[in-house]
Amino acid sequence: MPPSPGPGRRQLLQAGLASAGQLLLGGCALNDLGPGVAGASRPLNERLEAWLQSRGPIPEFRRDQVEPQRLLVNNFQAVPQIDPASFRLSVEGLVHRPLSLSLADLAALPQREMVIRHVCVEGWAAIVAWGGVRLADVLALAGVSPLAGYLAFDSADGYFETWDRPTALHPQTLLVSRMNGAPLPAANGAPLRLATPLKLGYKQSKWVTGIRLLASLDPLRRGTWEDQGYEWFAGL
């Protein structure tokens, strides 16, 4: 006698095959469960990501490895018109000295360039040379309160982002005004955008006009795309 599977096991098998069939013939019924499965898996994923990133700087590429043709442009709205002469970057919230910096103020800070891989949530990536000031230097000017665990970045086009404090203070997180050795093009976020090797592209706001230091996050306003379902930490 071949030992046949018991009824319980057979039912289980049938249920499994049925759900597999449903998956193949249109996961539509399962699509709504996406936020649920993400809620179950993301806290652990994000803790692992933060831990991985706490282990020193990310190796950079050589300048001759940049791939200008691979860098695609994704915009939330139309490219905003910004007058460089009247442009100001505000730094407010939980800081000792709120700031309003002109582009000349930023240019007076130590400049650095990093050649990193810019990775888009869509799956493409490009090696880019970003030039600008360390976000940590700007934040040091403002004097960040120890209570400020998060940062919010407001952009001229209405896009907004929120970040964790350690990534913002990372030495490879820059407020950039130059790309691949030339002034940053308007489509790529001129006059000022975020750049870091540590997070996906949608975290790296273009046309940044304001930085707010926060003690906590509003769970309903964590970022333009995050509120639609993208990962908040989005570590690379």
């Binding site: 193949l24 249109g26 699509n31 499965v37 898996s41 993301r42 990962e231």
Partner: peptide, 19 residues
């Protein structure tokens, strides 16, 4: 679409990185 799960990029990523 019949081969896909998630409904959109964000939904696909939710499933992929949960699985």
């Amino acid at each position: 679409a019949p081969l896909l799960l998630g409904g959109w990029l964000g939904g696909g990523r939710q499933w992929h990185f949960a699985g």
